[in-house]
Every structure is written in structure tokens, then in C-alpha cells.
């Protein structure tokens, strides 16, 4: 492939991925409302479209048409910049996550990942650390005490859990011997999923992912009873929708990342022994990836509507005194595994 073909293929892949994320996020909001209704014995949205299936689109339209109110005390340029950063971070993170094996298109072998870079996992970590800015800046620039409190809580929480997140990834890297997401997926062929080999690391990463995406039981940054709306109290119209969209996109990306790191990525166990043609192999792999991500997304929503919110000191205790030592322990466990079984 020459440089022009690579650029064309990459742009096509970016368009596909962005479209899929946007659609997935729209329906994620719908399913969140439906599942919460189910959990609370209600009906949920059922007016727009078949069983309310077009409700999210109606909501987006409503938000677009609303008046954009910026408070007087707000710092206007930064108030506008914050949701842009939130969206930028959540959409660019997906670039390195592979969603299928190499496929043949017009005689070229195209990997089903937007950017197959050597330092993919570090890229993800770097971008998640940028996500803190969106919330901190939103909280500070709104000029309201509720926003500021939400922003500060969120940054403290994200910085604390980033550490156990990074250390949990350490165990995965030891086994795959690579920072490339594609190789991490390939290292988990057959039953050798990282979730089975290092369950403790899987749990610490899962909990940290909940904290990083600000989902319940860790949604203190926007705890409604105490902080009105948290860091986005002073946002309205499409700027609010930006944060809303970014939150759900982050959930989607966290699920995709957990699947890639711990649940074998797009691999269906022992699929290469079935003697399928290349095309079917790719199709089944992509579907497998989609099902795994969907299952995790359901888990995210399920937890949100089942578990109450932590108190702030409990959250910090859990992060620093439980998750951090556990993730360190996991690294030692993986090192022992490698030493004993020569994995």
C-alpha cells in the first residue's frame, strides 16, 4: 500500500468507527432508560417510535433547539472549551482498539483498527489522563460552587483510580510482552483470556474503569442530591449534550478496552480450528467483539441501578487502600505465573 491508499483506508475506518460509536451511544441512552425502568418496575420511554426506540433522537433534537445559557460568572472561552475536550478525548481514545482481525479489501490486507501503533496502551492511558481536564475546566469555569465541588471531586477520583488502572494493565503487558493492542488480543487465543489468568487484575481494572467513567457507584462528581448536577450544573443545550454524549462514549470505550485487555478482544475461542473461510472468520470475530462489548455495557447499566453511591471517604479508601495494593499484588501474581509455567 502506498501512502495515499493508507490515508483513504484510514479515513474510511475513522468514519465507520465514529458512526458506530455515535449510534451505539444514542441507543445506550435508550437502553439505560429502559433497563432502569425494568429495574424499578416502570415502563420507561415508550412514546416516540416503536417502544420508544426513537426517543434518543427526539432528545438530541430537543437539546439542539434549546437556548444555550452561559452564566454571568462563567469564564466564557473555557466554559465552551470544556465539552469540546470531553468529546475529543472520548472519541480519539477508540483509535487504537482493534475490533476485528485483518480483512481483505480490494486485495489489500486491512487491519480492523484505526491506528495500529506500538504504544497503543500508553496512548489510551495518556488520553484518559486528559479526560480530567474536561471536568476540571468545566467545574472551574462555570463560576458556581456546585460545579467547582463536582470538578474537584472528579479530578481527585480520576487521579486516584488512574494509578490502580495503570498497574492492572501492567499484568496484561507482562503476559502479552507488548504495548500493541493487536498483539495483546492475539496473546489471549483459546481460553488464555487475561480475565481467567489474572482475575484480581481484571477486577481492579473493572472497578477503576467504573471510577474513571464516573458511573455509579462512583458518580460523586455529579451526585444529584448534594451537588445539583455536579460539574455540568451550569451547562445547557448542546454543551450539556456534549458532556452527556462523552459520558456514554466513555462507557462504550471502557467496555471495548476491558474486552481487548481481559476478555480476548475479538477472538472467539478456537474459531481457527473450525476451518472457516477468511470472510466468515472476520464476520464472526467482529460479531463476537460486539457481543462482548454489549454484555459489558449491560453490566455497567445493571450495576448503576443496583448499587448505591459510595461516600467520599469510602471511595478514597477503596481506591488507595484496596485497589492499589491489589493491583500491585496482581503484578507479582502474573510474574510468578510466567516464572512457573513459562507462559
Amino acid at each position: 500500500m502506498n501512502i495515499l491508499q493508507i490515508i483513504i483506508f484510514t479515513i474510511v475506518k475513522i468514519l465507520i468507527v465514529v458512526t458506530i460509536i455515535l449510534l451505539a451511544v444514542t441507543y445506550l441512552v435508550y437502553f439505560e432508560r429502559k433497563i432502569s425502568a425494568w429495574a424499578q418496575n416502570r415502563i420507561g420511554p415508550n412514546r416516540v417510535g416503536w417502544h420508544g426506540a426513537l426517543q434518543s433522537f427526539a432528545d438530541v433534537l430537543k437539546l439542539l433547539l434549546k437556548e444555550d445559557i452561559v452564566p454571568d460568572a462563567a469564564n466564557k472561552p473555557i466554559h465552551t472549551l470544556a465539552p469540546i475536550i470531553a468529546l475529543f478525548v472520548s472519541f480519539t481514545t477508540y483509535a487504537v482498539i482493534p475490533f476485528g482481525p485483518n480483512i481483505n479489501v480490494f486485495g489489500f490486507s486491512v487491519p480492523l483498527v484505526v491506528a495500529d501503533v506500538n504504544i497503543g496502551i500508553l496512548y489510551v492511558l495518556a488520553l484518559t489522563s486528559l479526560g480530567v481536564y474536561a471536568i476540571t475546566l468545566a467545574g472551574w469555569s462555570s463560576g458556581s460552587k456546585y460545579s467547582l465541588l463536582g470538578g474537584i471531586r472528579s479530578s481527585a477520583q480520576m487521579i486516584s483510580y488512574e494509578i490502580s488502572m495503570g498497574f492492572s494493565i501492567g499484568g496484561v503487558l507482562l503476559l502479552s510482552q507488548s504495548l500493541r493492542p493487536v498483539e495483546i488480543v492475539q496473546a489471549q487465543s483459546g481460553w488464555m483470556w487475561n480475565a481467567i489468568l489474572q482475575p484480581v487484575g481484571f477486577i481492579t481494572f473493572l472497578v477503576s474503569a467504573f471510577a474513571e467513567t464516573n458511573r455509579l457507584p462512583f458518580d460523586l462528581p455529579e451526585a444529584e442530591p448534594e451537588l445539583v448536577g455536579g460539574y455540568h450544573t451550569e451547562y445547557s443545550s448542546m454543551k450539556f449534550a456534549g458532556f452527556f454524549l462523552a459520558e456514554y462514549a466513555n462507557m462504550f470505550i471502557a467496555s471495548a478496552l476491558i474486552v481487548t485487555l481481559y476478555l480476548g478482544g475479538w477472538q472467539f475461542p478456537y474459531l481457527d480450528h473450525f476451518g472457516l473461510s477468511n470472510g466468515w472468520f472476520a464476520v464472526i470475530s467482529v460479531i463476537t467483539f460486539a457481543i462482548k462489548v454489549a454484555a459489558l455495557l449491560f453490566f455497567f447499566i445493571w450495576v448503576r441501578w443496583s448499587i448505591p453511591r459510595f461516600r467520599y471517604d469510602q471511595l478514597m479508601n477503596l481506591g488507595w487502600k484496596v485497589m492499589f495494593p491489589l493491583s500491585l499484588l496482581n503484578i507479582i501474581w502474573v510474574a510468578v505465573l510466567i516464572m512457573v509455567f513459562k507462559l
Binding site: 504504544i119 500508553l122 492511558l125 495518556a126 484518559t128 489522563s129 486528559l130 480530567v132 481536564y133 488512574e162
Partner: peptide
């Protein structure tokens, strides 16, 4: 480059 982002942008600047 990535460590620059993680350490300086994600840690120190925050």
C-alpha cells in the same frame, strides 16, 4: 511522547 503526556499533562499540570 506518551510519557510526556502522561507525566506532564496528566500529572504535573493538573
Amino acid at each position: 511522547a506518551m510519557v510526556q503526556l502522561i507525566v506532564y499533562v496528566g500529572g504535573i499540570l493538573i
